[in-house]
Design a protein around this nucleic acid. Structure first.
Lengths: 344, 344
DNA sequence: AGAAATTGTTAAAACGTTTGCACAGATGAT
DNA sequence: ATCATCTGTGCAAACGTTTTAACAATTTCT
């Protein structure tokens, strides 16, 4: 292990000078810089990151805290895209990403405080907000750079967020079905304790209410972000005496399950029943039929989160502590009847 | 920031004693332990990770180096599952994961050496082996704990690997199609410079050769791990005078594209053409029709990699430096003709 | 009872950096 | 010619831990 002292000795200068060469200190002469750099090259010097962090009190590392049952919650798809956004920006900005997940609920705050108070990271990105999230509350109470991708359940918690307008997004999705002539519209939701489920539910209800359409409690089911959930939802919903003809589905993966359920039960999409979902993962256009989906700008969500967090760390001015990433409904076959028969 | 010295002072002991309390040193008395722990609790003490690393020369962190164009290469799906396997084990073993990616080719070795020689991580997991991979050669030459998920292109490079028997896997997939009565079988491959493409190609050729079936160079196309690749492959292949009736596809995502291409061109799967692919991502059974796929134990691949790397770091005995994770062909509709018409 | 081993604790060095302060010499202003 | 400023470098302290060696106090062995 070649240290700064070795370089200093070999170059006939002091360690401080070497340090200043590394950090491009303006007071170092051209000649010294050249000499030292040459020797560093020859000897293969790499600064010890830990030693540097210890004195500089900065790690150039961001933590990303995965939701606890990471496996089920974001079944790879949405998450991968989000991660790509985060990673792209943080790499550009010279930050590394530390991926952590807790094993138990109690573990959660412990894990985070180990990283935060142990000064292992400079900032934290939180994923997936639950309605009454102890982790968000805990981290929000600390004076530590952090950002939530999603919405905090509690209004008084002071924490930067980047999120979609999920209420509006769900409103748009629902409204789209209404415009297509549907009046009996159901909602296949996600876990009840997530704010995203709440918000989309609200948008769904708002659209239905404004259109003066009746809602039935059987038309709303909750589940996980898994295809099984969608499948099960259909087994239940299609057994009802009065079935919906349109469905808003919380997530594309769930929509895949819904699609399979409907197919197995002998229903045709979109002729018998129409479908709109969220997230617009790459494969949703390859489903049969292609699924209409609200693109929530997943990559943007991640990119922006990283951007804001690093600004916060560097004490740069933050224009808006709660950013909303725009969404866009992508209409595909699953929600467009080929033979338009509106009316009654 | 409350340090070990603050605790020591408050407890009326020396910093060394506090340190030993934290690390459960056997020589510390019950009473001292209790007293110190109480004070740590009260004052909210968290050891500074960097200081600890500096002296202990260990970071309890693993780096995972993403393939350069991470975006295209593993379009989220396969990668997410792999990550889950890695993360599950490393979390259990008390290791954090550092996710890094390089922006340019030159950057690649620089990034890795910053981490390795900067002693920021204890070990490295390499993803996606290219045939003549400078990064693998570089890292293999260093005496640093590392593991490759995949196969090194060069025989002389000494590096632990965890991989599938991709030759056999492709052999199995191809053989399955042959058993179904196909004789004109094509192969939609991935990027030519990846070892996995090579190995699967070899398995395909082996199966074809053993069965005495003719191969045409037009039946083999290379592309990316993207649906577009699959789509384009079909545009080309289905325009041939003599078309294959069976296809081995390098990846499920590509298979989705193939499926779309075939559908748009008016071909029915599996009646007109059969399909087998690899990786068995969650959505492949939800395609229309469900895609036959070789399950390569993605989660296992990641889990095992983490396991082996940590053993290496801890100097525990490694039974086998090159582990093969078993694969299993999952037969679904895409490769089973409902009306079996073998023969001529 | 004295020697030897065990137990519980501490002082101090070490890990590899960064940085405030000091200082010598060169340059510029008056 | 004197004083002030600027330029280039070094000294030494600091960052918050772990760990070796030392030692006093206690217990165990003859």
């Amino acid at each position: 292990m070649v240290t700064i002292k070795d370089i200093a000795r070999a170059a006939g200068v002091s360690p401080s000078t070497v340090s200043r060469v590394v950090s491009n200190h303006p007071r170092i002469s051209k000649e010294t810089t050249a000499k030292v750099k040459k020797i560093m090259e020859e000897m293969g010097y790499h600064p010890n990151v830990m030693a540097k962090s210890l004195v500089s009190k900065t790690t150039k590392t961001l933590a990303i805290m995965l939701p606890r049952p990471a496996e089920e919650l974001f079944q790879d798809f949405f998450f991968g895209e989000l991660l790509r956004g985060i990673l792209t920006h943080s790499t550009r900005a010279g930050y590394d990403m530390l991926l952590t997940t807790a094993t138990s609920a109690h573990d959660e705050t412990e894990t985070i405080s180990r990283l935060v108070f142990g000064r292992r990271v400079d900032g934290v990105i939180l994923l997936s907000a639950r309605v009454n999230d102890p982790l968000i509350r805990y981290l929000g109470a600390q004076d530590f750079p952090s950002i939530l991708i999603g919405r905090t359940g509690e209004e008084h918690t002071r924490m930067m967020t980047v999120n979609n307008d999920n209420v509006q997004a769900a409103y748009d999705a629902t409204h789209h079905l209404i415009k297509q002539g549907h009046s009996r519209i159901g909602f296949v939701s996600g876990p009840a304790n997530l704010t995203v489920s709440h918000d989309r539910m609200e948008g769904y209800k708002k659209a239905m209410g404004e259109a003066g359409l009746p809602m039935q409690s059987e038309w709303v089911v909750e589940g996980e972000f898994l295809q099984e959930s969608g499948f099960r939802a259909m087994s239940f919903m299609m057994g009802l005496p009065e079935r919906p003809t349109g469905l808003v589905v919380i997530d594309d993966v769930v929509a895949f399950g819904v699609l399979r359920g409907l197919t197995e039960l002998g229903y045709k999409v979109p002729d018998d029943i129409s479908l709109v979902s969220f997230n617009n993962i790459a494969l949703s256009e390859l489903a049969t039929p292609p699924i209409s989906s609200v693109d929530i700008g997943t990559y943007q969500l991640g990119y922006t989160a990283s951007q804001m967090l690093i600004r916060l760390i560097l004490d740069e001015p933050i224009h808006q502590p709660n950013v909303i990433i725009p969404h866009r409904l992508i209409v595909r076959e699953s929600s467009v009847r080929l033979t338009v028969n509106r009316g009654f």
